[in-house]
Amino acid sequence: MNKNIILCGVGGQGTVLASRLISAAAMKEGLPVQSAETIGMAQRGGSVFSHIRIGEGVNTPMIGLGQADLVLGFELGETVRQLPYLKEGGKVIAADRAVMPVTASLAGGYDPSVMKEYLTANVPDLTIVEVEEAFKELGSSKVLNLLLLGSALHTGSLGLSKQSVLSAIQENVPPKFLDLNLKAVQFYK
């Protein structure tokens, strides 16, 4: 199996943990993995992304334009930003979430519905994940990453088994948050 996956969002949304969980799950299945993440100043509210490449014969962790099988978007504007990397016929799973940049609060903001319309019109294989209800039911808005991971797992877009993802979570999430995270990843059935 060869899979190129891009995770994208805004610093602080938990893309890094989700990326590590996918890599750990792939390694559990004995697959070679390479990945790269945004670290440093951009984490302070900037655009962040992770590239994950699973499979044999991969030279570099970076995914080229038009090469991603899956874009997992944590934020609508950021999802659209990564579309040039999506392969023809690739899948997009996007959270129905908009994070306004501070500059937008000062200058008037951007319209998330424009992004949603653009995604609907341009991505044939699109899943928009409504997360507000899940936040309410789970009592936390900090599980966005695991909800999206769960959605990707549920739609079979990761090419990884539920078992390996669950055990990656068990091994990588602090015990205090484990129960909540396990619930979140299995929220969409």
Partner: peptide, 18 residues
Amino acid sequence: TPVAPQLPPLPVRPPVLC
């Protein structure tokens, strides 16, 4: 080369104090 999609104007996100 893949055809670059024409994207709508995207939000600018300079890093900010938390």
